[in-house]
């Protein structure tokens, strides 16, 4: 494991940068339940960081802490070298942290295109009156935003459904539109909560490819949660393993796979 905080190059030649997000001693409770127990880990620029663990391990909770939906009782969140004060989710989004949800949260009444356009909201700057009356700058901004969105639509191969109301799409495509919306924000950090859950093999392969391509082409730092050990091994640079709210492993997929505690947790606890 490389802990020094300095940039490095992986065995297969991938550039890993400085620490982008640093979670320090996070503890999160719901009433008497400790969903996260004193966990520390970091996410580095340019890497794909995975969180794995059985159901109820606290993975989604951790993602929710990062994105401001949950607020930990103890611990500190450091982002780009600064301690982040407690923030609401919309403030975190404005910092350049985009996310998807385990249970998909899309705007069902809007078209695919409109959904993805909402991902650009944090980039829209023109004042209200200018948008309604004085067209110049507002129109230019709209054109720029549309260009970004169209690029993402091409990238994720969803041209055919761009005008379809999202509520009518099948599950696998909804997941892809949600990814598109997150990408539209051009985030510095992209959080994906089980992006492949409930998909068939083919859809999983597509999604894996998209995640790798996003990381590769846009250099986006990605933290993702995944159940499937095999997928995680293929995708990620480093893995955090959680079990019952504790961190029981942290390192490269290879290191984690050979960690006795991780093996025990995965064999001892039934996971679906």
């Amino acid at each position: 494991m490389k802990d020094s905080g300095a940039p490095y190059v992986t065995a297969d030649g991938r550039q890993i940068g400085k620490v982008l997000m640093d979670m320090r001693g996070i503890t999160l409770r719901f009433g008497g339940v400790e969903a996260i127990k004193d966990i520390s880990f970091d996410i580095r620029e340019g890497e794909i960081r995975a969180m794995i663990g059985p159901n109820g391990a606290g993975k989604s909770s951790m993602l929710n802490v990062i994105s401001g939906f949950y607020h930990p009782q103890e611990g500190e969140v450091w982002f780009r070298g600064e301690k982040r004060p407690p923030m609401k989710p919309f403030q975190v989004a404005r910092l350049g942290i985009a996310r998807t949800f385990q249970n998909i949260a899309l705007f069902d009444g809007m078209s695919v295109l409109d959904n993805i356009m909402t991902g650009r909201l944090t980039h829209m700057k023109t004042g209200l009156l200018a948008q309604m009356v004085w067209k110049g700058p507002a129109e230019r901004e709209e054109v720029e935003n549309r260009a970004v969105v169209e690029r993402i639509i091409d990238f994720l191969e969803i041209q055919a459904i761009r005008k379809t109301p999202v509520g009518r799409l099948p599950y696998g495509l909804k997941k892809r539109v949600e990814l598109a919306r997150a990408l539209a924000a051009e985030p510095k950090l992209l959080l994906l909560d089980e992006p492949m859950a409930g998909m068939n093999v083919e859809e999983k392969e597509d999604m894996s490819r998209f995640i790798l391509d996003v990381n590769d082409e846009f250099g986006t730092t990605i933290a993702l949660i995944e159940h499937d050990m095999g997928v995680v091994m293929d995708l990620s640079d480093r893995v955090v393993v959680m079990d019952y709210g504790r961190k029981i492993g942290d390192g490269t997929p290879h290191e984690v796979r050979n960690n006795q505690e991780v093996i025990d947790a995965y064999l001892g606890v039934a996971h679906d």
């Binding site: 994105s67 939906f69 609401k88 989710p89 919309f90 989004a93 404005r94 985009a98 996310r99 949800f101 949260a105 899309l106 705007f107 909402t118 991902g119 909201l121 944090t122 919306r181 997150a182 924000a185």
Partner: peptide, 9 residues
């Protein structure tokens, strides 16, 4: 929830 995640207050 989705609105919050795209930065809407």
């Amino acid at each position: 929830q989705a609105a919050l995640s795209v930065g809407i207050s």
